[in-house]
Amino acid sequence: MSFLEAKHLTKHFGGLTAVGNVSLKVEQGEIFGLIGPNGAGKTTLFNLISSFHIPTSGQVFFKGRNITGIKTHKICKLGICRTFQVVRPLRRMTVLDNVIAAAFSRTNSKARAYDLAMETMEFCGLLHRKDALAGGLPIGERKRLEITRAMATRPELLLLDETAAGLNPTESELAIKLIKKIRDRGVTIIIVEHNMKIIMTISDRIHAISFGQSIAEGTPQEVSCNPAVIEAYLGEEYDQCLT
């Protein structure tokens, strides 16, 4: 039994097949990379796993349980939390209040939620901004807030959708460190990322999709040398392949 398993997931939007018959298995404790060109269906796949969309066909299993089509808010209680590619801060609330709101998914007590929030902000390195309004943060910190908020729900599986996009090199370095730290806490991570340096260094395994179809899966090494991936996504000039 895999930790998370998607079986033949398909999602149509009108005539468009955003995700077509994608199957994948994610094991507990790994960092699972998801790559593919723009519009390949990565975000849609996240939306299917996190029940934001109901699949046209196919199922999602989490720890052996069929979670296909359950209410969106119940996903969080099960231990799955996702971040948004286009960040969604609760703008007119402070960073602290954003994180407290998330922490309330694990407790009804304000004091406990506060402690949980403070601990999570410390862990994610956002404590110094706790009193800032979320809507006023620069993009780097907004992305970090997305992760912090998700972590405050104490997930077992974290879905990160391009959390390093738009970050400068120092910030991406910090993001990589944070993601590794989260994994070391025992959280399983599925990550979508266009930055090859990041995805190739942190992923244990990578799954590549194009036009909604799976085209390859394997270690970073294997995937980066896969001709279909090179053609659809990486391009001929990508010469990190070591074979």
């Binding site: 609760l90 209040d97 709101a101 998330a102």
Partner: peptide
């Protein structure tokens, strides 16, 4: 307040 600010984000946080 979370619902006022963003219903989708709120849902993702288990609300």
């Amino acid at each position: 307040l979370s619902i006022r600010e963003d219903q989708d984000a709120a849902e993702s946080l288990g609300i």
